[in-house]
Design a binder for these strands. Structure first.
Length: 801
RNA sequence: GCCUCGGUGAUGAAACCGGUAAACAUACAGCACUUAAAAUGCUGCGGGCAAAACCCUUGUGGGUUCGACUCCCACCCGAGGCACCA
């Protein structure tokens, strides 16, 4: 008979809630903080993919509770952001209302899946009580000079009508809507994440994170070490420093290239003999979109500044100067020394404009292939006193030689750019700043926080670079806190990523009105012991959160250098057709219908059984049916044996084996194999008489995976106290040892025979048994036995000639 | 181009530290139960053969080893990330 999952699941979910079974205790050691990346409360609800991570952390949370940990396992809502606002534009329904509705729906989805969150700690980034502290952190950043305003050519999404951070531009397109971004000069709030570049890079070392994510962050931060030689401009007081990692190729530098944005171009105006040509080029470069720049990688364009020459500091050669947009204004000094012989980009440019190519580095062996640049390290020639040196040594020697004459400096640059922090949209945290005509930028007083987001009727973005908030006169026009004169509020809002950059701290102390988090509680619960979410946040959320955390650490508001000590990525759940699930493709599978048809327990173990946790795997309803069948067998097996007292020895060995395998694999964050082990165990045990001891152990081990059915059967077996209170069982390795085993006999490494024998025999005894085998005789007859290898407990390899 | 993962039956996959390749499931086929279907149970299921014996098989080619999915070298393919970063 099929087990009645609907009644059972409802019954236990209500019981757990009534008992407050998942409430975290304050200051009860040891603690374990296991956290999911909190979701955006979309109107579609969550699909089965979101639950893969949630079920895994839930299993860990339940396991850790049984192992005696005081588990902090909270959930909340990252509810600011564009979709709610776009929905409001379309329907006129306020984001506050849609957010609340969506949150209720998703919270319910999580509850019917039996996820063991401590709901008393629920947070929502759009509640003033929460964003008060997001704003507070912003004020601290401002006070430390880490939040500043700047007119910048930013990435602009013409569809979302807002500026974007570099991290939000993927392939020249808006991360949200896929529209191609353009450049726009707007005054922006910028956070100085670059001040933390070195620490963000160095501290990755100690983290138990997937190597992939660490590597992505390293690349994003992009540290590079080199020298910055100075090129003097001929007949001028100006000079131009350039950054290079290849100081060893300096003798091969035959021209200099400036980025179109380089300020010195203006200073040189009077010397330039071809001003029309130059300004035409600059104009063209300025309007190019990010996309165009990327697509033109192969076709380098530029223009010479005729009449301007610079001097190569290493050999005093006069060389020409070009402007080209393959040199970026925002990296290094915005100027490069071009060495066409040893840099592929310079090589292409030199070929196109017929510039001199001077070879100064050759490979240690063989000749240079002069059809392309030789970019590897090698041995210097035609390089004065440095000829004959290897590249590595030459870099150092040349750098030091120049720096003695104050013609170069050792330098480190990072690819990481400051975080563009303002958005010209409505549905976000207002930036707590007042712009006064007299006093300039004035921060709000901390006691005036939260600065509430006003309720408005018109959400349409203005497209002018101002947010819709700018239209609300009574909100915008305020008195300056400093001089009491006329002033205007900052109308930009914070980006999507603000609220999620510190939310893990608020779970520790969600109702604190006086501070962001109580110091003692923070010290107790931090860091997050296990953080689980998709790999798609590798350089956005995970980098921003680390930055804010380090900042709070410097202010002594948090006690750890890093927020998340262990991170694991969950793989996508794809639609049955192998495609990504999306509303537009109509292939989204909701957990609700699966739970309705097969129950939460079946849903939960299917999510885990479908494959390795980190891999992307297609959904299969037949797979759900398969594990549902398994749960029915667990039910029937337990009911059938519920009155048995004792178990046979072989079953005791088997349950200990199961115990070992499940414990070990859970420790390694493997969730698919333990389920296979349970199935194997049941296949073995089903026909046998099982006693209460074995049944109970099985249920306790299974309970983190499928808590409802286990609770019910646990009760049926006569237990009064919830299975949640049981200790995670230890296995006895002496009981696992089998009495009889199968010897596997190989001849020259190939399996030829299998012989059953007593376990634990000596090599001599085994040898005797093995050579009695007909098959072994057949293969060894007339041949010389060179070696006899015995690999305990069961493998034998006989090497014959 | 660079970086990081991957490549095993029809499918999802398993295999600890180098030791029986394909556990566990799904699909499929056959049988039982049923008036019938579903559900359930049983059997089979990498390939060369219908079968035993035997041989082959973890992307390809080579190497190390008594023994390689696992280690080393070269290459091919796929996914994700970065991408004119000097």
């Amino acid at each position: 008979m099929a087990y009645q999952f609907k009644e059972i699941e409802k019954k236990w979910q209500e019981r757990w809630e009534k008992d407050g079974a998942f409430k975290t205790k304050e200051f009860s050691s040891p603690k374990f903080y296991v956290l999911d990346m909190f979701p955006y409360p979309s109107g579609l609800g969550l699909h089965v993919g979101h639950f893969k991570g949630y079920v895994a952390t839930d299993i860990v949370a339940r396991l850790k509770r049984m192992q005696g940990f005081n588990v902090l396992h909270p959930m909340g809502w990252d509810a600011f952001g564009l979709p709610a606002e776009n929905y409001a534009i379309k329907t006129g329904i306020h984001p506050e209302i849609t957010t609340e509705k969506n949150v209720d729906n998703i919270r319910n989805q999580m509850k019917i899946a039996g996820l063991s969150y401590d709901w008393s700690r629920e947070i929502n980034t759009t509640e003033p009580d929460y964003y008060k502290w997001t704003q507070w952190i912003f004020l601290q950043l401002f006070k430390k000079g880490l939040a500043y305003k700047k007119i910048l050519p930013i990435n602009w999404c013409p569809s979302c009508k807002t500026g974007l951070a570099n991290e939000e531009v993927i392939d020249g397109k808006c991360e949200r809507c896929g529209t191609e971004t353009t450049k726009k000069d707007i005054e922006q709030w910028v956070l100085k994440i670059t001040d933390y570049a070195e620490r963000l890079l160095d501290d990755l070392e100690g983290l138990d994170w997937p190597e992939k994510i660490k590597e992505m962050q390293r690349n994003w931060i992009g540290r590079s070490e080199g020298w910055e030689p100075v090129f003097k401009i001929k007949d001028s007081l100006f000079d131009i420093p350039v950054f290079t990692t290849r100081a060893d190729t300096l003798f091969g530098c035959t021209y200099l290239v400036l980025a179109p944005e380089h300020p010195i171009i203006k200073d040189l105006e009077i010397d330039i003999e071809n001003p029309d040509e130059v300004s035409l080029y600059l104009e063209k470069a300025g309007i190019k979109s990010e996309r165009e720049r990327i697509s033109e990688v192969k076709d380098k364009t530029g223009v010479e500044l005729r009449g301007v020459k610079v001097v190569n500091p290493i050999n005093n050669k006069e060389i020409p100067v070009f402007v080209a947009d393959y040199v970026l204004g925002h990296y290094g000094t915005g100027a490069v020394m071009a060495v066409p012989a040893h840099d592929q980009r310079d090589f292409e440019f030199a070929k196109k404009y017929n510039l001199e190519i001077v070879w100064t580095v050759k490979p240690e062996q063989g000749e240079i292939d002069k059809s392309k640049a030789f970019v590897e390290d090698g041995v210097l020639f035609d390089s004065g006193e440095f000829s004959g040196l290897g590249s590595d040594e030459a870099r150092k020697k040349i750098g030091e030689y120049l720096s003695k004459q104050n013609l170069a400096e050792k330098k480190v640059y990072y690819k990481l750019r400051d975080w563009i922090f303002s958005r010209q949209r409505y549905w976000g945290e207002p930036i707590p700043i007042i712009n006064c005509e007299k006093c300039g930028t004035v921060p709000l007083k901390e006691e005036d926080l939260p600065l509430k987001l006003p309720h408005i009727e018109k959400y349409q973005p203005t497209g002018t670079g101002e947010s819709p908030l700018a239209a609300i006169e009574e909100w915008v026009n305020v008195e300056c806190p400093k001089c009491k004169g006329k002033a205007r509020r900052e109308t930009n809002t914070m980006p999507q990523w603000a609220g999620s950059s510190w939310y893990y701290l608020r779970f520790i102390d969600p109702d604190n009105q006086k501070e962001l988090v109580d110091k003692k509680k923070e010290e107790f619960f931090m860091p997050v012991d296990l953080y689980v979410g998709g790999a798609d946040h590798a350089v956005l959320h995970l980098l921003y959160a680390r930055f804010w955390h380090k900042f709070l650490f410097d202010l002594k508001h948090v006690s750890t250098k890093e927020p998340f000590s262990k991170l694991r990525n969950v793989g996508f759940v794809l639609a049955p057709d192998g495609q990504k699930m999306s509303k537009s493709k109509g292939n989204v599978i909701a957990p609700d219908e699966i739970i309705e048809k097969y129950g939460a327990d079946a849903f939960r173990i299917y999510e885990m059984f479908m494959g390795p946790f980190g891999e992307a795997i297609g959904w299969s309803e037949n797979g759900v049916k398969g594990v549902y069948k398994f749960l029915n067998r667990v039910w029937n097996f337990s009911i059938k044996n519920k009155d048995n007292k004792e178990s046979p020895k072989e079953l005791i060995a088997e349950i200990n084996k199961l115990n070992k395998r499940v414990s070990e694999d859970l420790e390694k964050m493997k969730f698919n194999t333990p389920i296979a082990f349970f199935m194997e165990f049941l296949n073995f045990a089903e026909e046998k008489q099982a006693g209460k001891d074995v049944l109970e152990r099985m249920l306790v081990l299974l309970s983190p995976f499928t808590p409802h059915i286990c609770e019910e059967l646990w009760e049926i077996l006569g237990n009064k106290e919830s299975i949640l209170k049981q200790k995670w069982p230890e296995y006895d390795k002496n009981l696992i040892k089998e009495e009889r085993i199968e010897l596997v006999v190989q001849i020259n490494g190939k399996v030829k025979d299998k012989i059953e024998a007593k376990n634990g025999l000596s090599e001599e005894e085994i040898k005797e048994i093995v050579f009695q085998s007909e098959k072994v005789k057949k293969w060894t007859e007339g041949r010389e036995v060179v070696r006899f290898l015995f690999v305990p407990p069961s493998l034998i390899n006989i090497v014959v000639k």
